[in-house]
Amino acid sequence: MEEFTDVFLMVLLIVGTLGVLYVNNLFVATMLLGAVSLIMALIFVNLDAVDVAFTEAAVGAGISTVLYLGTLALVGANEKPRGKRSPIPLLASLLVGGILAYATLDLPKIGSVDTPVQMSEVTERYVYTSPEEIGVPNMVTSVLASYRGFDTFGEVTVIFTAGIAVLLILRQLHRRREDEETPGNPPFQKVKAEGSPHDLVPHVVAKLLIPFILLFGLYVQFHGDFGPGGGFQAGVIFAAGFILYSLVFGLDNLKKLIPVHFVEIILAAGVLIYGGVGVVSMLKGANFLDYNILSADPIAGQHLGILIIEIGVGVTVTAAMLCIFYGFAGRSDELEKNNGE
């Protein structure tokens, strides 16, 4: 049965990607890409990678799709049909595919127990020793936050880079002048002014949903030790809650709630929190990111270290997603204003 689902999902995957390739409407292509990501997440669940599935669903099917849609709103959704086709792309892809197909010949059978990957001393320790050594049931969290914690520091830096990159590239055309707004104007009046009666349902639903989204974000943040989740997924969920708020109540209201400058500060703060743990362990005389030294009891030290760095991850991811959202959404607002003038 499992094999059947696998085959079925994979066929869907191929159909989806071919659709992406051939469809000329970019909206459709984007939605298909989101679907492909979602199917991929299901396949990851089948392959026991629940953390990855969670992230792929949140990022590939969620955030990425939002980004693409935001971009399409700015640049238009039709691909120009093309006359001439060069044979080079096809040949190059076939060559790469051919080499990979050749590579798979000697790869061990999928799922067998005696592959080099499963027999490795590395795997052994991660699976059998980590629960005692680190005291965290979710081995993915142990490896991610402790054994390979430096990679994760790099990952946070990548997200930070993306945040400042989008801010730098999509620099706002004009500085928004605060004095344009009437001082002391309560936000709900603005909502009324912007919205139409049809917005009532989304407003109510959003008001009901957002607290739960944020609560769920907190749960994912702090439950990562025991089940799938952690700072990254939590950050995405958090950002999604705020983005939903902005979609329903308007970007300006979100900016009042969380000013751009504040987002920039917490974007940097997350990286510094993460790195700060490393600095503290260095000051205590151990190596960078060695959590054992953080407490008299190594297991408690590991717990403390993982808790703090996961907060760092969550903070930076939330801030970076908001930065990126502000960059794109702010852009369309500005364009509208410019066109209006």
Partner: peptide, 23 residues
Amino acid sequence: YSNPLPHVLILTAIVVGVATTAL
């Protein structure tokens, strides 16, 4: 248990992917 290491690596790669997409 399935091997956690590839999962960790791909978590990082997914993040890198979305960062590249945003940029």
